[in-house]
Design a protein around this nucleic acid. Sequence first.
DNA 1: GGGATGCTTCGATTACCATCGAAGTATGAA
DNA 2: TTCATACTTCGATGGTAATCGAAGCATCCC
Lengths: 226, 226
Amino acid sequence: MKEGPDIALIGSLIGDPARANMLTALMGGRALTATELATHAGITLQTASSHLSKLEAGGLLSQRKQGRHRYYQLAEDEVGLMLENLMGFAASRGMNRHRPGPKDPALRKARVCYNHLAGDYGVRMYDSLIAEKQIEINGDDLALTPAGQSRIEALGIDYSALTKSRRPICRTCLDWSERRSHLAGSLGEALLTLFIDKGWAKREANSRAIRFTANGEKAFSELFPQ
Amino acid sequence: MKEGPDIALIGSLIGDPARANMLTALMGGRALTATELATHAGITLQTASSHLSKLEAGGLLSQRKQGRHRYYQLAEDEVGLMLENLMGFAASRGMNRHRPGPKDPALRKARVCYNHLAGDYGVRMYDSLIAEKQIEINGDDLALTPAGQSRIEALGIDYSALTKSRRPICRTCLDWSERRSHLAGSLGEALLTLFIDKGWAKREANSRAIRFTANGEKAFSELFPQ
DNA sequence: GGGATGCTTCGATTACCATCGAAGTATGAA
DNA sequence: TTCATACTTCGATGGTAATCGAAGCATCCC
């Protein structure tokens, strides 16, 4: 009768539209204040505060106090992966909140998935890394090959810093628009940071969308050939 | 602000305890009648009926009329995968509805995941199939190798019947207790059916648990060596 | 046909929870 | 200290949805 883990609890946390909007906003990867999240959800600050403490109690969000602000973010990588997964399922059922709008193609092309690159570009990068044997699949785990390691170090990513964290370096995440895997984990995060630092890509203001510059497009295609 | 698919809708569907109990019960793989599902959820038939039509409208369940009974089951493999995934997330957050009971070890050892084998045995089978190169990973897809094909035909599984369906033959599913992949898809289903038809394993009455016989244990170890 | 079983629909009730106004706490600035 | 900003807590309200009794269909059996 009552077997296994309690999916009703998470379900009810995500099931409220205001909370779902907040979580979606946080999938953009930026830590947001309570007030910002309230506007995203279209509710007052009091209501938002109540929702946020529920999400935090449920382990979906974590909080960081900074002066008189409280910055909220997804508690862990797993939360982002789970949400992207749910979005994929929802999309496959045609559960869309709007008819595909002008922003939609941009999202499908490239977007932030919590802290790494997703969309067409995310999948292309993943496929290219696999094809060039810079990452490889061992059962459930994804690992950086020696070739891949020297490659990312050449790009200026500090490999030893990645190994210090307890988080997995490589990890797959199921892309909701492409229905295929892309790269998550600390390397996925480092690569997106790199693109932005180099000025190849920019995050859009209130959106998950990522816009590549002309230079960025070129560099990306060279780095990750089809 | 309102980007991407509507996760709140699925969330709210799963978020009700009665509905979550029904879905969990249907993860046992058997099609159940409305009355049976009502008892599983601990509610009256009227209430259950209302929940069931919501779940059906949401695309999570499908219905089959047989005489005066209505048999409900998960609409598609994807629904089962999504639920198992959510359970994994819930379990990792310690969201359990009960302190680990006597049934719990049995579930972790071997259980039905909608229509295929899960738990320790499910993962062992998957690992063995990979290690012996009978299935292989190509990017996101799992494929049966020629060796694997003749192997399952030797076991008495009708390979051509598997290819006729539009469903993928091989597919990975994330195991909530082991936190690793096991085999889903039409082959996963066929293998579990085979175990039961041969009398190697039995489904328990009102549970997802699967009990292997002494013969079954032996046959399983020989077929899928560590 | 008559009766029983399985399920749905209707209607009324209840309980929960999202919502917001108002007041309270904390941090920062002046 | 005083004022402003950011947020939480309290309390009251309202709306939604879960719940169940009763009645209505549908199917099967005799």
